[in-house]
Every structure is written in structure tokens, then in C-alpha cells.
Design a protein around this nucleic acid. Structure first.
Lengths: 250, 250
DNA sequence: GCTTGAAGTTGACGTAGCGGCAACATCTAC
DNA sequence: GTAGATGTTGCCGCTACGTCAACTTCAAGC
């Protein structure tokens, strides 16, 4: 006895549209299509439909469902399911991480709110060196730096404001004591300098050494860093060179 | 300074296609569109893009992202995120259940089980004859019958409830009048009987004749149909035989 | 026999978020 | 002047159907 599409639909809990769809993609062909176009199904198609729905409800795509059912190989099916399970687990973990991130974002919003742009750029927008920086490194680099600044937390911003002066003062003290630039205490300060620099851009080894040299070459940097003590700036350059060669990737 | 679409794309880690898409759906309008059609972005758009990507990467839809950013209300954003987190957790739990189901299915397959679950029919109302029906005709036939019942319309159910009694009463009356089993009035009643039977299963010619014989052989059917009048049951069997031979396919 | 309602059919569009063409315009560099 | 990079606007494709629209066909009642 032949079943109409609506009977199959009701008995299997799907819509007739779904059955038509399965027909159109060749996943479940009716047993017979009458000359008037109506679809009729038999026992065999109902069984196949049950298998299709079972696999579909496991989250497999219809493509995969079709393949699994077509192959009729049990070992194959197990493999597909095992792979699918792996994917499910991965996806589950991803969602778990997302939940944590969302939580963190909510926390961040509740405490002091999101970094508003005004706050981030406070104290930097009128940077007297910006015009020259654009000239020297190009607009893209400068703007990229600004973009990076938007990712700052409050702590980052604090670090950016106070980091460089602390490095300069610390270096001056160590140099006065005659500490070699290869010493750990000096290198730790340079590391701080590097970290602060990385808040703006990420220098490669050569770029970082070039930055040290620029401090020496440019009178304004020399003045800003050494406050008259040109030897201090050279000391810093040497320390940066040591640091770059030992810690940075080319 | 104006950024070209490719520059923005590179600095933000998205494709230019994505930026065009965001433009087309109004999520991120360029600062300026030159007469030649080229898009140019400014600092402001970059900031907005960062916010968009942040929210997008939390799994929010672009629609929602647009709303959150447009409203600029912190409390609103927190609410949306909290709701979104709930959804994420739910989805995560769903995946967890799926993993379990997949696992169970794999187990089932390994232990020689099939993918066609008789489980589907679990929880269905059992009638007192079911156990015997399974014994007599096998699980497959009974399950198929149950599935067929799920496809019933209201009219079908009504027919199933009232059909058999109407047949029995009608036959009793005709037999009392001495009408031959080959007469149209009798055959019309048998046709009704056949239709009702087809609501449960589809008998072939021989199966239908066997069914009539079973009514005679089985005491319970005899009692149910004839209410003591065994001759009525035999009358019905004969009528069914005539019907089967004239109307049913072997 | 005629009307009506239920059930069927074939398109076609919509979904979310772009990817990936094609066909064409424009800019930049040598 | 020509090539090559970079840009533009479409349009199709992807999942698994839902949801019309416009017809046709079937079963039942008068």
C-alpha cells in the first residue's frame, strides 16, 4: 500500500516540505510518482526515512547522512560518527571559551566600562612628535600604532605613560654605578622599554637596534632621554643592541 | 588621513569583501566614498570596526552587533551579553547531550545493533492484543502498523473506532435477511472492512482470506465479531474470500 | 453534475555571513 | 604606453528547509 506525502509526514514528524526537499536532493526518493506528480511512499522508504532522521538529529549534515546510508557499511558509519563526535566536542569547548570571554567582557563593562576612545587617546592626541612620526614612518605605521592603542587596558595606558621615564631614570642610575650593559639589571630595564614600545608597535631585531641608534642620532630624543648626558643615550643604545641580539627575532 | 579598504582590511584582519559587506548592510559606512566609487575610512570607522569585531567574535549576530553599537548604552550591552551567554551555555549543553547520543549510537553499532531504532515506537500506547500480534505477525509488522497509525487524520481515527462495529452489525442484518455474500450490499460492507484494515496494514489477497479464516478459528475473534453467532463469522469469512478474489491483488 | 475544501504540485524567494567568481574601471609605476 | 595592482558592482553558492503564490487534482456532499 502506498502512503501519501502527508501521511508519511504526520507519521514521521516532519513536514511535507521536508520530504519534497529530500526528494529534490535525492536523499529520499518516493517509491512511485504518479502521472499527476503525486509522491507515494512504501515501507522501504519509511525505514530509510527513520535512519535519515536518526542521523540528522545527531547533527550530521544531509550530505553526510546520504553517504553513510548509501554505503551501508557499518564500520564506515562508526568512523563518521566518531569523527563527528570529535567535532562536537571541539565545538563544545569553543563555546565554553566563548562563555568565559563573554563573562570577562561583562565584568569589564561593569567595572569602569569599556575603554572609551577619548580616554585611550588622552595625552597622546597632542603628541608633539606625531607630525614627524608620520613623516618618518608614514601614516600607515602611525595610524596602526593608534589602532593598537585602542586595545589598551587601563594598565597598559598607565604603563605607556610612566614606562619610558622609569627606564631612563633607572638606566641613568645603573650607568652611574658603572654597571655593564650586558648585566641583568640593565637588560631588565631594557625589557621594560621593549614592552612599552610593543604597546605602540612591534619592532623586529634590526628595527629595535635602529631605534636605539635613532635615539643617539636625533637631537630631540637625545635631549629627552639623556637630559644632556649624551653618553647615557649611547649606553642605552648599546644595551638595546645587546637585548635585540639576544632576545629578538630577526 | 584616509585609509583604503585594503589597508583597513590588513590592519584589522578581515577581508575587503567583509568590509564591503558591512557597508552594504549599513553596519560600517566608510567615512567617504570617492566619485570613482572607492571607499575611504578614517580613525572613527576603525574604532567602530574594532568594536564590531569584538562583539562578532563573541558570537553575536551582526544584527545584534549593530544594535548594541548603535545604542551606545552600557547597561543595554550588558543585558545583551548576559542573554547571549545564556544562549551559549544552552547550546553547549545541547552539544554535550549530542555527544552522548552519538556515543550511544556508536556503541549500539559496535554491538551489532542497527540504526533503525524500534525505540522510536517506545512509549506508545500498548493494547492488550499487541503482545500476541507481535508473536503472530512479528515485530516489524506491528511497528509498521503503529507508525501508520501516527499518520492518521481525525477522520481516519474516527473510521478506525467505528468501522468494525458497523461492519459487524451490518453483516448480521444482511445475513438475517438471507442476502448472499456475493451481493453488492455485503461486498460494500466488506470493502469498508478492508478499508479500515488498511488503516493498520495492507493485506494481500491471500493474507485477507487468511484473516477471514483466522476470525473463524480464533475463539476471541469469533466472540468479538459474532457475539455468539458463529455462523455470522463464517458468513463474514466467505464474504471476505469473495471480496479478496474479486478485488485484491495477489 | 457542481461546488467546495483538503491536499497535492511546481517554482521562487528568504535565511547569515560572507567566499569566490566575472567583467569592468582606475590608479601607480616603470 | 602598458602592465599589474587595486578597486568597483553584481551575481551565484552555501544549509535545510519555511513560507508564500498560483495552480491542479481528489474526495465528498448537495
Amino acid at each position: 500500500m502506498a502512503w501519501s506525502i502527508a501521511q508519511v509526514a504526520r507519521s514521521s514528524g516532519v513536514t511535507s516540505r521536508t520530504l519534497r526537499h529530500y526528494h529534490s536532493i535525492g536523499l529520499l526518493m518516493p517509491a512511485r510518482v504518479a502521472p499527476n506528480g503525486r509522491r507515494y511512499y512504501e515501507q522501504e522508504q519509511l525505514l530509510r526515512l527513520q535512519q535519515i532522521l536518526l542521523l540528522r538529529d545527531l547533527g550530521l549534515s544531509l550530505d553526510v547522512v546520504g553517504e553513510v546510508i548509501a554505503h551501508r557499511d557499518e564500520q564506515d558509519a562508526i568512523e563518521v560518527l566518531a569523527k563527528h563526535k570529535e567535532w562536537l566536542v571541539k565545538e563544545q569547548l569553543r563555546l565554553g571559551r566563548l562563555v568565559q570571554t563573554v563573562d570577562a567582557t561583562i565584568d569589564n563593562l561593569k567595572r569602569g566600562g569599556e575603554m572609551s576612545p577619548d580616554k585611550v587617546f588622552e595625552g597622546f592626541e597632542r603628541n608633539p612628535y606625531e607630525a614627524e612620526a608620520r613623516e618618518r614612518w608614514g601614516d600607515e605605521a602611525v595610524d596602526a600604532s593608534y589602532q593598537r592603542m585602542r586595545g589598551w587596558t587601563e594598565a597598559d595606558a598607565e604603563k605607556a605613560r610612566t614606562g619610558y621615564p622609569r627606564v631612563h631614570e633607572g638606566l641613568a642610575a645603573l650607568k652611574a654605578e658603572g654597571v655593564a650593559v650586558t648585566e641583568l639589571s640593565v637588560q631588565e630595564l631594557i625589557q621594560l622599554h621593549h614592552e612599552v614600545t610593543c604597546l605602540f608597535w612591534t619592532p623586529t631585531r634590526e628595527a629595535y637596534k635602529g631605534l636605539g641608534q635613532m635615539y643617539v642620532d636625533d637631537e630631540r630624543f637625545r635631549q629627552n632621554i639623556g637630559s644632556g648626558d649624551d653618553a647615557l643615550v649611547e649606553y642605552m643604545r648599546d644595551a638595546m643592541t645587546v637585548y635585540a641580539d639576544s632576545k629578538l627575532e630577526s
